Simulated scan of single mutants.
Amino acid sequence: MFTHRASRPHEPLRTFHPRRSPLGRDRTDALDRLFPRWGFSVDDERAAPPRTPDGLLDTAALFGRTAPLVVEIGSGMGDATAAMAAADPGRDWLAVEAHLPGVAALLVLLEREGLTNVRVAHGDALRLLRASVAPGSLDAVHAFFPDPWPKARHHKRRLVQSDHVALVRDRLRVGGTFHVATDWAEYAEQAAEVLAADPDLDGGVVPRPAHRPVTRFEQRGLDLGHAVTDLIVRRVR
């Protein structure tokens, strides 16, 4: 079930670098027990999510209720997602993560904290948005510390670029928000330019919102002197 699938020639370039890491006993156990209950695969039909008759993600069936939905693109080890979902139980949270250790770690947190408003998808978030998420259906999309792809020849793989931003904006409701955080200064500048260029989005750089917790990954960057930039834009039409 849990395999990395190589990009096909006709598919868009991935915005993440597939990697394999050991899971350990606790995380392996979490995947075996909890993934069938709280998770699904973007690519593997054997672990596909519930779908509506037109083939889109059936969020009411997935969460057991109808509520505003937040999508986390690249939820990492899940600590930020779990903290925000716990503080905001009126919304549902879909964490999409390509790396199994992060999927497993978040499942462990969900069980430990007793959270019922989070589900976890394993795979490429952009592929999920393209194929399975209805236009205008999301309350918010978060992308915290996406891979900066620092080498110039790899910039085309960055998450925040015009076609990806257009996809995210299309899936947001009018008034919905896209929140990006990065500790890579050059990426922050580029992201601000790309977001500002979309005429249907409004906003830009903001102070770190209190609702976004500082993760262990972010704290390591802060300890090294990295400046963190938060950008929040809202779909205006």
Rank of each mutant, 00 (worst) to 15 (best):
A47Y: 05
A47L: 15
P49D: 06
P49Y: 04
P50T: 10
R51N: 03
T52Y: 04
T52E: 14
T52F: 03
P53M: 02
G55P: 12
L57M: 07
T59S: 09
A60Y: 02
F63P: 02
R65D: 08
T66R: 14
T66D: 14
P68R: 02
P68A: 10
P68K: 00
V71A: 04
E72R: 00
E72N: 09
E72Q: 11
E72P: 02
I73Q: 07
G76R: 00
M77N: 08
D79E: 15
A80M: 00
A80E: 12
A83Q: 13
M84Q: 11
M84L: 10
A85I: 11
P89V: 10
G90H: 07
G90Y: 03
G90N: 08
R91L: 13
W93D: 10
W93H: 15
L94D: 13
A95K: 04
V96N: 08
H99P: 07
L100I: 08
G102W: 04
A104G: 07
A104I: 06
L107K: 01
R112T: 15
G114F: 04
L115D: 09
L115E: 10
L115F: 12
T116A: 15
V118M: 03
V118I: 07
V118G: 05
V120M: 03
H122M: 06
H122E: 14
G123S: 12
D124L: 04
A125V: 01
L126W: 02
R127K: 14
R127F: 00
L128M: 15
R130G: 10
A131T: 15
A131I: 04
A134E: 15
